[in-house]
């Protein structure tokens, strides 16, 4: 099988590699690059656990051929890591509000909320719920996730 040469920016760093043409971004990240913070929950875009940011926009990496990342910027949950070990306000808020239970949806929720707060620093509850509605959480009932986003928005402002 042929391979495709691929270059893109991943969590701030340029990466170049060859992939099989039918590789999905979720598998490239998890299996090829060891970034397992991105989860595969349904592989059809129905749970959102595989959400990554492509040029800052939330997308389901289980539905994205890896080739689509060519020349673009991919951000995964690992991309929020800072050299000094400190956490983003959203990460702090998810901990503080008890917004993570099993944690499987947590990276996707945090990334989606990151994109939301970038475009809309002071969202109301309805805006938060709409923006995050593509990620399913089976544990929390969502309330503490909404609260965490509100708390982080306040902390940032």
């Amino acid at each position: 099988m042929s391979t495709v040469e691929l270059s893109f920016k991943l969590n701030g760093r340029e990466v170049s590699l060859s992939v099989a043409p039918d590789t999905l971004l979720v598998d490239l990240l998890r299996e090829g690059l060891g970034l397992t913070g991105t989860k595969a929950g349904c592989r059809e875009g129905e749970c959102g656990a595989c959400t990554v940011l492509l040029d800052g926009t939330p997308m389901n990496s289980c539905l994205l051929p890896a080739v689509k990342a060519q020349g673009r910027e991919v951000t995964t949950i690992e991309g929020l890591e800072k050299t000094d070990g400190s956490l983003e306000p959203l990460q702090e808020a998810f901990m503080g509000e008890g917004a993570a239970q099993c944690g499987f949806c947590t990276p996707a929720m945090i990334l989606t909320a990151t994109a939301l707060l970038k475009n809309n620093p002071d969202p109301d509850e309805g805006e938060i719920r709409h923006a995050l509605s593509g990620v399913i959480c089976r544990c929390t009932g969502y309330r503490k996730i909404v609260q965490a986003v509100q708390t982080a928005a306040k902390a940032r402002s």
Partner: peptide, 9 residues
């Protein structure tokens, strides 16, 4: 349509 993630692509 679908979800925000779906609508984005």
């Amino acid at each position: 349509v679908g979800s925000p993630q779906i609508r984005n692509v």
